[in-house]
Nucleic acid binder design. Structure first.
Length: 447
DNA sequence: GCATGATCATGC
DNA sequence: GCATGATCATGC
């Protein structure tokens, strides 16, 4: 850390004093910070370039941004993260993005151990500066709302530890190119680069892999902002549970006792008395089967893990394909694959609740299963998405069918056929969405 | 029995 | 009223 002011207006060796000094930022804008900075400041004639985090580093904390390996406030072991939050239509506050912690160096990380890994050396204590994003304002007018010093809880840290191992092991297996954010719970390996072509070499495979960084998932950041999800309940009550089992193993073992049990029996066993025809009946049941009193599972929310119900027919084929939210024709034509809504969904982590129909047509719980889409199937989904975008642009209301790809297809998804979205050519077409083919789901469940 | 079109139930 | 997850209905 090279100081731009001497003496510094805070004690750079003390996390508490750094926090005290940082708190002065609450309620101010970046412009305010700039106005209080010296005349020679390089952010003065900000043309929209440069980063807001750097502005704070130089103009509020008076040091030059350092290299990647060390924490920003090295002497205090504090890493600074300046990150946007957004306000929803209902007034609630949410993270706008994931928080990127550090680039994953594929060549070196395979030799690291968790106990002294580069990630935690840098990111175990985070100074989080949240500012409110507003598309109607200039960047310098964004307001800093909240500053806090963040340290992971023991339980979260254990889950992040397991996530780290999963990511590093995949690289050790020569599969850096197959990494997905859906592989892990709180700590994700997100893509990071100027474009999707920033490829990197990896140690145990000739295949070049996208550059990725460790990051805290957006939903995890939400839990930081809201101080934990008040309405959600944790499955893991005590950190000791994670000493001998992974998070995934705990979840699956809790569900084991329900294996082959009929839905009626499960309902009785967990004392569940909801309307049986509710379409989210089985998803709600999952929380009860995991021993919760509420419907919302804290770990799944923080990890952005979507529960999907799969009903298998007698022959083991899913009764239905899997739907996703309807896409807007006006949106998809402006998207590129890596930033598209469908891509965002498919790179998530899923939890499948699988039920099997017996000879009498009664549903029995079969198993729970964590799932992320394999990267080669993601490539296939991309072709379906590209073709869909092409047809919207060409004004063709006839989309990829399940016979055109073994992974995904497009089908109506609205309240009825009169439920429409506008198209670029000004027409109104029935709302549609991407579906994962039933046959593809079957194949994935078999793994 | 599958592929595709159409619609339902809920929560916010 | 609408977005979302899920399921129903029909024709071949």
């Amino acid at each position: 850390m090279s100081a731009l002011k001497d003496p510094l207006p805070y004690d750079k060796t003390s996390p508490e004093d750094i926090l005290r000094y940082s708190k002065l930022l609450e309620g101010t804008t970046f412009k305010n910070v700039l106005d209080n900075c010296g005349p020679g400041c390089r952010f003065r004639d900000d043309k929209g370039k440069g980063r807001l985090g750097q502005l704070l580093e130089e103009c509020h904390f008076f040091y030059m941004p350092n290299s990647d390996m060390k924490a920003d406030f090295e002497d205090a072991g504090v890493e600074l993260k300046t990150t946007p939050i957004k306000r929803l239509k209902n007034g609630k506050i949410r993270a706008k993005e994931r928080i990127v912690l550090s680039i994953i160096n594929y060549m070196e990380i395979v030799d690291e151990r968790w106990e002294d890994c580069s990630l935690m050396k840098k990111s175990s204590l985070l100074l989080l500066i949240f500012y409110l994003f507003d598309r109607n304002l200039k960047r310098l007018d964004y307001k800093i709302l909240k500053v806090l010093l963040w340290q992971f809880s023991d339980t979260d840290l254990m889950i992040i530890h397991q996530d780290w191992i999963n990511i590093v092991n995949k690289i050790r297996e020569g599969k850096a190119h197959e990494l997905s954010e859906g592989d892990t719970n709180y700590l994700g390996a997100c893509t990071k680069g100027i474009d999707s072509n920033s490829m990197r070499e990896q140690p145990f495979s000739e295949i070049r892999a996208k550059q990725r960084a460790f990051s805290l998932k957006q939903c995890y950041v939400n839990s930081i902002i809201s101080g934990g999800f008040d309405d959600a309940e944790s499955v893991i009550k005590n950190v000791d549970e994670l000493k001998n089992k992974t998070f995934e193993e705990i979840i699956l073992s809790k569900l084991d006792i329900y294996s082959d049990m009929s839905v009626d029996d499960i309902d009785r066993k967990v004392g569940y008395m909801q309307k049986m025809n509710a379409k989210n009946h089985y998803a709600l049941l999952a929380a009860r089967m995991l021993g919760l009193k509420k419907d919302r599972i804290a770990e799944f929310e923080k990890g952005d893990i979507s529960i999907k119900t799969i009903r298998l027919k007698k022959d083991g084929t899913p009764a239905e394909s899997m739907s996703f939210p309807a896409f807007k024709y006006l949106d998809i034509v402006d998207e590129v694959w890596e930033d598209s809504r469908f891509y965002e969904f498919l790179t998530k982590r899923f939890f499948f609740m699988v039920f099997q129909e017996d000879d009498l047509g009664i549903l029995h719980f079969k198993k729970g299963m964590f799932w992320a889409m394999p990267s080669k199937d993601l490539e296939e989904a991309k072709t379906v998405w590209e073709e869909t975008k092409r047809r919207v642009l060409a004004d063709i209301d006839n989309f990829p069918k399940s016979s055109e790809s073994h992974v995904a297809h497009v089908r109506p998804h609205g309240r009825n056929k009169a439920d429409t979205y506008e198209t670029p050519s000004g027409k109104n077409w029935t709302k549609k969405c991407f579906w994962l083919n039933a046959g593809y789901i079957k194949e994935q469940i078999g793994k």
